[in-house]
């Protein structure tokens, strides 16, 4: 019998018997139970595990079939591994809040950097909004957010950097605050190029029925490449690395910062 971490002496010591199955241990850690099953997970998110679990990069020959049915985002496959075996595995991400979501024959689109892991019963596809991934089907996935996720209903306008994702509603459109951009700051910026872009002059606008997921942060989590769709007419960002969706020929509005603005996730 271990004498360390005995009950009553500070925080609880967990072992495989007391850890939850496919649920949060606390706000920042999620425990996945594997019973000969598989989970897709992003590299670098496993902090510890009990049992015998194997991690294989996507592309491991044996996994071909699984990948073909559940993973439709081949161009960032190098960021993902498949965990399989039996045991309990703890997932976390930079001490951000971690939550699991259950989809029942549903769809949810999420910023790629926020997605930690998902069950293979869901299929993962690239959203046509650059930098976002869509999960479709029935199953559980785990996502991180800077601060707890806040659920809002449309109509709403959102700072692009505070957007975690959206479910069941049409893709967002851009909203520009012309009053702001043509005002003092916009004018200064157009002349000097200083100041950068901020959410007050440009938002994602959601209308219709659905749910919008927000995080309380404007510090983006590291952008995960979602790959580039093939170059073909009618595909936004097709063939252009970095997902530059906006046409190069579009007239630039005053206050718009071109590449900088795009880098800010707009």
């Amino acid at each position: 019998m271990s004498t360390y971490g005995t009950p009553g002496a500070g925080p609880v010591a967990h072992d495989p018997m007391t850890l939850p199955a496919d649920d949060n241990v606390d706000h920042y850690t999620f425990c996945v139970e594997l019973k000969g099953t598989q989970w897709f997970m992003q590299k670098g998110k496993m902090i510890a595990y009990y049992g015998s679990i194997e991690f294989n990069g996507i592309g491991h020959g044996r996994l071909d079939r699984l990948v073909r049915t559940s993973f439709h985002s081949p161009l960032h496959a190098s960021d993902w591994v498949v965990a399989e075996g039996s045991g309990k595995m703890l997932l976390a991400d930079r001490a951000f809040d971690v939550n699991s979501y259950d989809l029942e024959d549903g769809n949810l689109t999420i910023r790629s950097g926020n997605l930690l892991a998902f069950q293979p019963s869901l299929s993962l596809k690239q959203s046509i909004v650059p930098g976002f991934l869509t999960l479709i089907g029935t199953g559980k996935f785990v996502a991180a957010s800077n601060g707890p996720v806040v659920f809002m209903e449309p109509p709403i306008r959102v700072d692009p950097q505070a957007l975690v994702g959206w479910a069941d509603c049409p893709s967002p459109c851009h909203h520009y605050d012309h009053g702001y951009m043509t005002g003092v700051m916009g004018g200064l910026r157009a002349m000097t190029g200083l100041g950068g872009a901020s959410g007050e002059e440009h938002q994602f606008e959601f209308v219709g029925a659905g749910t919008v997921l927000l995080q309380s942060s404007e510090a983006l989590m590291a952008e995960q490449a979602t790959g580039t769709p093939p170059q073909e007419p009618g595909v936004p960002g097709g063939g252009i690395p970095g997902g530059q969706g906006q046409g190069a020929g579009a007239p630039r509005l005053p206050g718009q910062l071109g590449d900088l603005q795009r880098r800010f996730g707009l």
Binding site: G179, G183, V184, G199, S216, E218
Partner: peptide, 13 residues
């Protein structure tokens, strides 16, 4: 600092 808004709200620097 604005994360999101509902309604008609204006922001003036």
């Amino acid at each position: 600092a604005m994360l999101a808004y509902k309604g008609e709200v204006g922001f003036t620097p």
